[in-house]
């Protein structure tokens, strides 16, 4: 760290510029917006442009009246729709994360144990889909799972089933979509921590009498925990607020909070309630996001 260096005036100016520009940008376009969301979540919806009451009533000069209301939050508590959305989101995100882990761990382990020239190729194959459109990859599953989709056609022609299965617009399709689009985020940190693992630890455990399965549970798994945690958070957090996947692959009743928020905002045009939904979602996410940040900083040092 160069904190101790004494710069001249010009050096200080450059330093200030480097720090201030991104700082100011993020303050204005990242942090302030959250404050506004928070503020509006206490407003009342009105039919106007913009469709909510101001926080302070500027017109009435003195004394300034605080127009905050907890109605939106109370409504969230009362209406079952929101409860169900939050809980379902958490459940779907959690199960998807677990599925990602189940498929991603052996894949990451296999890549980490492959010979070096293979390793980079396989790793590239994991990252590659990420560069193609996310939306189109989700759409691909509509083609796959539809009533006359590829999977149904294949099963019908083989004779496994008599009529098409309802696969699209189900929760299973949502799980599939989430696992499909987010699995690179699981594999990459897992690979990073598995690749770092010293083969000698594995050999030492085996030498001391541990069978391959025991070596895995005693040594490999605990030592790859940072990768497991990072990967799980990288899947869980965005999956929790996912909007596209439940909208395209989920049924009408498959409510996830991202979709509920979107509908509240665009369909019902209730901005204050949408803000309250977002605020609560953010509070749910604070813990995992802080965990993730701590992990990131741990990696840096």
């Amino acid at each position: 760290m160069t904190g101790a260096i004494r710069h001249g005036a010009a050096g200080r100016l450059w330093r200030t510029t480097v720090i201030t520009l991104p700082y100011a940008w993020l303050l204005l376009f990242f942090l302030v917006p959250f404050a506004i969301v928070f503020k509006i979540s206490f407003a009342d919806p009105i039919v106007a442009q913009p469709p909510f009451t101001p926080f302070f009533d500027w017109a009435e000069s003195s004394p300034r009246r605080l127009l905050a209301t907890f109605d939106n939050y109370l409504f969230l508590l009362e209406d079952k729709l929101y409860w169900v959305s939050y809980l379902r989101s958490i459940r779907i995100a959690f199960i998807s994360t677990l599925l990602c882990l189940l498929l991603g761990y052996p894949m990451a382990y296999g890549i980490a144990r492959a010979r070096p020239p293979w390793r980079s190729l396989l790793l590239m194959l994991v990252i590659l889909p990420f560069w193609t459109s996310f939306l189109l990859r989700v759409y691909a599953w509509i083609v796959m799972l539809g009533k006359h989709g590829v999977v149904n056609n294949a099963l019908l022609s083989v004779g496994f089933i008599d009529g098409p299965l309802q696969m699209l617009y189900t929760d299973a399709a949502v799980y599939l979509g989430i696992v499909y689009t987010y699995i690179p985020f699981m594999i990459l940190p897992l690979y990073a921590s598995l690749e770092k693992l010293d083969q000698n630890l594995h050999d030492a455990a085996m030498d001391l009498g541990a069978t391959p399965w025991k070596v895995f549970t005693d040594i490999t798994l605990p030592l790859s925990m940072p990768g497991v945690i990072a990967g799980s958070l990288l899947v869980f957090i965005p999956a929790l607020g996912e909007f596209v996947i439940p909208s395209l692959l989920g049924g009408i009743d498959s409510l996830m909070i991202g979709r509920t928020l979107y509908d509240e905002f665009f369909v019902n045009r209730d901005w204050p309630l949408a803000s309250a939904v977002a605020t609560v979602l953010l509070f749910i996410l604070i813990l995992p996001i802080m965990l993730f940040q701590r992990y990131q900083q741990g990696e840096e040092s």
Partner: peptide
């Protein structure tokens, strides 16, 4: 290896980093 009456001290020592000294020795 786990069925041989042989044990090895590794060059890098390969001491399990997530276990205490006691756990390592008792492993």
């Amino acid at each position: 290896p786990y069925d041989r009456p042989v044990n090895m001290m590794f060059q890098s020592y390969a001491v399990f980093p997530h276990m205490t000294v006691e756990k390592n020795i008792a492993y």
